[in-house]
Each structure stands twice: as structure tokens, then as C-alpha cells.
Design a protein around this nucleic acid. Structure first.
Lengths: 210, 210
DNA sequence: AGCTCTATCTACATTCTTGTCAACAGCTTC
DNA sequence: GAAGCTGTTGACAAGAATGTAGATAGAGCT
């Protein structure tokens, strides 16, 4: 007698576990292809479920995309803040901080996600990503460390320096290898590292200078 | 007697005119949504033809995308080079040069195209976009204008400054409003302009300094 | 005018993607 | 162990997107 055609062993997770597994798989697609590149069937295959299961847990593709973006942006903000508050002053720590930030933005994929969101014009009101609060904090610290005899820099000056730091790390992650003429599949990690160190010292010099 | 159901006035262009019209419409979609967002039906509607006409002229969607990217990248390189060679030395011209470059990258959409290409990993071997030749030219000019008594900067230092300039303009165009917390639909043009001027002077200062 | 070339169109085929639905099957509870 | 809840699934529907095929119709040429 024939076997009953490979019993379809159905795994049944808790709703929360299923949602988490689906979000994890979706996040990979988000980093790789952006929100517009997410396909329910692909995600389903990655997780090992059928695509209606995803719809059951998230209602629609749009809501899934919204959920994964929200989770990712929250995680990114959290990691960036952690790195910033955990960094002491000084040149060597500044270089180390830039390394840490870059590791998150580049290899970690945060910069890609930000770029996709910016290009698609998806800026949920909930996540403005403004750097002004960071600039204000940096400005206070900057004034406190400056020689009282030197002229006081404006808040806008500090804001611009913070913006520049963010721009540099962001662009290095997205177009660094491209602008350096390195093949995408094997970028020159050493040149990239030296640029980041050079850049960190430049930014620090701007903050310490007049 | 009935009319013959609205005579389908068929416009017939030369093959070259048709290709150009199709590429023009495709280019708008490229800037707006990136290569992955180009739809034959949308382009056809924009041009006012049926989508098989596009396939007749370009063979396939892939070849259309390839053609529009090639044309756009060539145009971009051409414009950038024109702007660079037409710029004299000095602080005011440097600020003006940055304005001109930004006008092409931001409102002109070049930065968006570059970002899409970088994110999708489409870097045709034909267009490596390396800034090294530019850095070498800048290095020669830099050495010629430096005080002979000061230590000679390395080529890598000049390369990094050129990279930083490109990174700043690129990122300002892509994520400037986002990182400044401005609504996408009405960015603060004045703040953006001041940042670019501040940034141009910073870059110039790096080239002139030691 | 008649002929040829080919740009263009309508209609259709195929594949992909999201979404719906009814049924199935683990877990928990009684 | 029976019942209920719900996570899960296959089958199907509907629409969109690319690509194909044959017919049609401008434009140039003789």
C-alpha cells in the first residue's frame, strides 16, 4: 500500500512568534530591495509558510511593509542613540564612534533603508529623523569645552557639522565604493576605513576650532 | 450612415524620434521611481502610444531600462565636467560651483538616479563613476597653489576631500530635508542654501589648508 | 496610382502578485 | 476525548505587467 503522500507536517507557532519570524524575513528583503521590492511570496518562501499566512497576520502587504519599516526605524534610532551616549570625548574615541556608527549604517544596512525611504518619499510623520535635537546637545557640549576667549559658534554652525557627519557616513555607506571606483562585490575596506578616520578627525576639528 | 467610429488618427514618427520620445518619458520615471519602478504601460501612456510600440523599438523592457540609464549617466557626466572646467578659483566661485553642482544633483535628479543605481547594485562596467581622475586633477592644482614652505599634502588627502565634497552634495540632495526634519513637500530652501555655502567654504578651506 | 517598408495598433497569451475563502489541524480547555 | 479557537493551507479570483502575432496604415519611392 502506498504511503499517504508525505504527511504535510504543519508547524503552528504562537501568533507573536509567527509575526516576528515574518518580520525578520521581511526585513532582509527591505534592506536588500527596499519597501517597493518586498514580495509576499518571497517572504513566505523564506519563512517557510504559505503567503496567505502572512496576510492572516498582517492583513495586507501594505500593513506588513508599514510594520517592518516601523520596527526597523525604531531599532535604528535606538542603536544610534546607544552609540552616541556611550562615547566619551577625545580624538581616538571619536574615530571609534565613527567606526561604530558606520558599522551600523553600512554593513548593518541602516543607510540603505534610510535611502530607500527617502527616495520613495516615505517619511512617516512618526519618524522625522531630524538631527536637530542631536545638534542642540552637541552644541551645549561644544560651548562648554571651548576656550571662553574665542568667539561663540552659532547653533547653526554646530547643526551643520552634525549634518555633515551624518551626510558623510550615509553617503560613504551608499556610494563610497562607487565613487572610489571599487567593484561592488569587493570594496576596498582599508581605503574606506582610512577615509572614515580622516573624516572623523575633520569633524572633530570643526567642533573644536572656532 | 454611421461614422467610422472615431478615426484612429495614427501619428507615425521616424524611428529615431520615437525612440527619443520614449526615452524622454522613461527618464522621468527613472528619476521618480528608479529602474525597478519603470513600467512599460506607464511610459506608453505618457508618450501617447501603445506599449507594444515601445517593445518594437527597444526589444524588451530590460533593454529600454539599459538605454535610458546609459543616456542619463552620459548626460550627467557631461554636465558635471562642464561645470567643473568652467569654474575659476576663489571662494565666491567655489560657492557658485557648489550651487551649480547641487542644482544638477538635487532638483535635476542626478543624485536620485545615482542612489537608485547604487542601491540596486547596477554599476555598468562602462560607468564606474570613480572620482579618482578628478582628485588627481584637483591635486595638481592644489599643489601648485600651496605655499612651497608648507608640507605637501598627499594625493589621498586630496582624494578624500573630493570624496567628501561629492558625499556632501549627494547626501544633501537625497536626505537633506529628511535629516533637517523638514517636510518633504516643502523643504527649507534657505537652510539648504546656507548649508551648501558653509560646506563649500569648508571644502575650500581643506584644500587651502595644510 | 501602386508598391514597399515599417511604425503602430488591437487582441491575446503568460506569468506574477495580491487578496479571498473554505477547509484543515495543532493547542488549550472543559 | 470532545469542543472551540485560531494558525495554516491549497485553490481560486482579479488585476497588472511583459511579451507575441497578425493586421493596419502612414510615408517615401517608382
Amino acid at each position: 500500500m502506498k504511503k499517504k503522500a508525505a504527511a504535510p507536517v504543519r508547524v503552528r507557532r504562537s501568533a507573536e512568534d509567527a509575526r516576528t519570524a515574518i518580520l525578520d524575513a521581511t526585513e532582509l528583503r527591505l534592506v536588500e530591495s527596499g519597501p517597493a521590492g518586498i514580495r509576499l511570496q518571497d517572504v513566505a518562501r523564506d519563512v517557510g509558510v504559505s503567503h496567505p499566512t502572512i496576510l492572516h497576520h498582517f492583513g495586507s502587504r501594505d500593513r506588513l511593509v508599514e510594520a517592518v519599516i516601523t520596527r526597523r526605524v525604531h531599532a535604528m534610532n535606538h542603536e544610534v542613540i546607544l552609540a552616541l551616549v556611550g562615547s566619551p570625548a577625545g580624538e581616538a574615541p571619536a574615530v571609534a564612534l565613527f567606526e561604530r556608527l558606520f558599522a551600523m549604517l553600512g554593513p548593518g544596512g541602516h543607510a540603505r533603508v534610510v535611502a530607500f525611504l527617502a527616495l520613495e518619499g516615505r517619511v512617516p510623520g512618526a519618524h522625522p529623523q531630524s538631527l536637530m535635537p542631536l545638534a542642540e546637545a552637541a552644541h551645549v557640549a561644544r560651548l562648554a569645552r571651548l576656550d571662553p576667549k574665542t568667539p561663540r559658534p552659532t547653533l547653526e554652525d554646530t547643526h551643520f557639522i552634525v549634518l555633515l557627519a551624518a551626510f558623510g557616513l550615509f553617503a560613504e555607506a551608499i556610494v563610497g565604493p562607487l565613487f572610489r571606483g571599487e567593484p561592488e562585490d569587493q570594496p576596498n575596506l582599508e581605503t574606506s576605513r582610512r577615509f572614515r578616520a580622516w573624516f572623523a578627525r575633520l569633524v572633530l576639528g570643526q567642533l573644536e576650532g572656532p
